[in-house]
Amino acid sequence: MSIYGSEPVQSVSNGEITIDNHAEHHEHVHRDDFGSKMGMWLFLLTEIVLFGGLFILYMAYRFQFANEFHNAARELNKGIGTLNTIILLTSSLTMVLSIVALQKRKKQFSMFLIALTIAFAACFMVNKYFEWSAKIEHGIYPNSPTLLDKEKGEIIFFGLYYSMTGLHGIHVLVGMILLSVVFFKIKNNVINPDKFVLLDNSGLYWHLVDLIWIFLFPLFYLIH
């Protein structure tokens, strides 16, 4: 009746749950893949609410300062934005394919695809670095004299730009660390074709990072 494979026999004694799987001799630790996934989704929903709040702020200010937002967005590089979108979409593909590869018991290929995902994430961050450096060179950074000379709506636009893409960038960095951990866990067979919920959950996280960018990109780069 179990969702994932054969149901181990559970017995409760002195408040401790011990699980005894008769088919195997080694000790079995408690494991609940469905629960892990549900926990991950609950976390992802809090992330959606976190970014959702910022998007509400964006909406309110955009209606108030429509023209200023329009003008300020001219400063952003549409080309880099498009490139980064395609990089993130592709990294989502390699992420999901690595799960398929592991399910097909192709460990090396799965690890290769995880490494590729991390490499794409690094490309994204390098582009972001050049993009932000160019802005800072032009004197556009929070509280800079050049920026403070601009109209109020433009100051708000760049404030939102730095905080929202910055928060997203932090998520990309966290994703890179998480995927590195996953890479070594696959290598050491801790994550294996019979037990890969951590890989699954890391994938969910990575797709969420992609999902947020899908909305950030048109709202900041494509409004002029």
């Binding site: 999901v96 994938g203 797709h207 969420l208 999902l211 899908i214 909305f215 048109p218």
Partner: peptide, 15 residues
């Protein structure tokens, strides 16, 4: 609209 279509693809298939 395009962003919503894209995200529904990501959520339904990739996720």
């Amino acid at each position: 609209l395009i962003a919503v279509i894209k995200s529904s693809l990501v959520v339904n298939i990739f996720m």
